[in-house]
Amino acid sequence: MTPQHPTAPLLQVRDLLVRYGETLAVNGVSLDVEAGKLIAIIGPNGAGKSTCFNAISGQRPPNAGEVLLDGKSISGLLPETIFSLGVGRTFQVTATVPTMTVRENVQVALISYHRRTFSPWVSARRLYREEADRLLELIGMTGQRDRACGVLAYGDLKRLELAIALANAPRLLLMDEPTAGMAPAERNELMALVARLAADRGIGVLFTEHDIDIVFSLAHRIVVMNRGQLLATGTPDVIRADPRVQEIYLGRDDHTGSAEKQPS
């Protein structure tokens, strides 16, 4: 067999370790994200998913281990530096600017990406307006572009997060609970869009998600974490069949991992 993709994966995480005081929030996690692929991290609350995420995006530098983007180490870099290397991220609790319009929220990301932040003489109103409108069209928010972010419905804010994350033409997207708080129909729509963008533009996507249906229908590979450690990695089918995964979600059973056991 000849290797089909001789190049290294877009993102490689090796033996990541994050310590909070005495506790190891992330303990030796390794994972890969290839261009164009959706990789999901799942696990119970407190498994270390968000910490893992923050360590990759620079919000919380790892204590040990390495994060490689295109084979180059980005561990310990500042979030703004990691952003400039082509990593976009969305937040679990939306972090948009409520006092700006939808379009302005995207514009300001574009302003930063094009390094025009320190231009007190340039009017921001028309700066990268068309580019912002194109991104808003992509996520289907053209009709809302002049509304204040503070009055948007939560689902719309989540979509806007995606448009902002796309502003720096990222090669890697980090999405922390991208659909939390959205209505079921909205969730599927948003994640279908993400999957399409990933395929069309060759963006690697790493996401955490509560909605198990979404994870199993869209992720190319699933990484299961438990108590800071990597429990299993594999395709949805492999993960679904893994008894250990059932166990951490449902508790230990003395016989098998099967679900239909009577309670003792």
């Binding site: 500042l78 700006m100 300001v108 990406y113 231009s119 502003a167």
Partner: peptide, 20 residues
Amino acid sequence: SALGYALRVTRDSPARAAAI
């Protein structure tokens, strides 16, 4: 201005500011 927009982002959402 462009600076003013960036300034308002640092005020309303420092985490977002860093992420962009």
